[in-house]
Every structure is written in C-alpha cells, then in structure tokens.
Nucleic acid binder design. Sequence first.
DNA 1: CTGGATCCTCTAGGATACTG
DNA 2: CAGTATCCTAGAGGATCCAG
Lengths: 123, 123
Amino acid sequence: MSDLRSEIKREIESGEYNCEKELTLSIISGKWKIIIIYYLGTEGVLRFSEINRLLPKISHKVLTTQIRELEEDGVVHRKVFAEVPSKVEYSLTTLGESLIPIVLMMDEWGKKNIKHFPVAKNR
Amino acid sequence: MSDLRSEIKREIESGEYNCEKELTLSIISGKWKIIIIYYLGTEGVLRFSEINRLLPKISHKVLTTQIRELEEDGVVHRKVFAEVPSKVEYSLTTLGESLIPIVLMMDEWGKKNIKHFPVAKNR
DNA sequence: CTGGATCCTCTAGGATACTG
DNA sequence: CAGTATCCTAGAGGATCCAG
C-alpha cells in the first residue's frame, strides 16, 4: 500500500482503525489537499481554473482527483453551472471549514520550523 | 511518486516547495507516525518493544523505518543502552513536542467527525 | 531485544492526449 | 472550461528471515 487514504479508508470502513487521528490524516494527506483546503478557506469560492492557476505545478488530472476525493470526504462542495463553456465552483463545506484550524497550525508550524531543515538558500 | 515524505523532502531541499504546510505534512504523514508521536507525547519514554506492544498490527521493519524517519526529521530522540539484550529508549525532542498540539487537534477532529464517515458498527 | 536485508504488491501522483 | 482515459514509475508499507 502506498498512500494513506485508501488504506486508512479501508480500515475505517472495516472498523479496524487504530485511532481517530488516522481519519483526519487520511483526509488531509494528499500532495495538494491541505493547500487546496487552505485556498478555499481563505479565498472562499474558487473555480477549477482558478485553483489551477494558484497551483501551477499540479497537473490537470491530479487536481481533478484531489478535489474529487475531498468532495467524497465531504470537505469540499462542488457547484456546476449549466453554461458553455462549463463553469464549476468549489467551496468548503462546514466539515471542510472545521479543518481550517488544523491547516493553519500546520502552516505556522512549518513556517516556524523550516529553518531546522535543509533548504536551498535561494528563497 | 507515491508517498509524500520523500517527494516533499526533495522539493524542500531544492527550495521548490509550494508552502510550509507541506513540511509539516511530510513529517507527520506516514501510516503510524502520528500515533507514535502521540504515544511518546503522552507516555514520555518508550522502548522499541513497548511501542510495538501498543501497535500490535505494525510489523517490525515498518516500525523501525517509521521511527528512523522521525529521528531523521529531528522529532524523536533515540537513546541506546549498551546492554545485552539490547535496550533502546525513544522520546520526543523539543521539536517533536511542538507537534503535539497538532496531533491532539487531529485526534479531536477525528473523534468528533468520524460519525460522518462509513464505519463498521461493531465498535 | 533491536533492527538490518530481501522481496513483493499496490497505488498516488504525474504526463499527455482527447472530449462535450 | 472542466474533466476523462491511458500509460507509467517510484516508493511506502508489509512479510519473513537473519544477526549482534
């Protein structure tokens, strides 16, 4: 098993998880998820292309799956407009908003402690 | 790329990370890491076998690597006693302790919200 | 008791091209 | 614009055996 989501999800569904922290971890662990949650939390509502612009390095398909999983987990709300060209807006659900404090703490912790880790100086 | 640690570590070393939250995520994302941090945080000092007893489902080798990585990241301290049979004690470093609030928030969030997720009833 | 060495499986994340 | 379909690869987590 490589990443955490699928495996922990399986454990949770079978009732064999080790502790509830795992649930939280399974939701936020994904290459881009905390950043997406963060942006939706601070910007409010974002279109697919807007998120993509905020995260230039993410590929199309990966952004789709990351958002889909967040949606499945009830963290993100997806609103489709019946227009051409298509328009889709994403926002946090109440559940998603309740994750913001955790994301902010992780942000603060990272900013405070990144100096302990090897980083290229050119930043 | 499968799991987050190696990839985000690479990004951080090259100075190409997206944001500092990623650093935090890269440290705690691992199948057993938050649980290990949690136990070390609440129990204080634990021997290898004691952690293993607390986490019966983890395999020997995996426990070793999870702890090694936490050690590399400066989160866990490893104290070896020159005895036979060998004895090794693990504890949190100051950096590790500073992660406790995050782990606790994740624990609370999970406990509070697990009801929104499909769980086997027999718990 | 602690933990290294091997071997294996599974899938997340990425690249790219196509579509309504 | 938003999203799906294919194909690929690196590595995490696991099982098992060996060793100081």
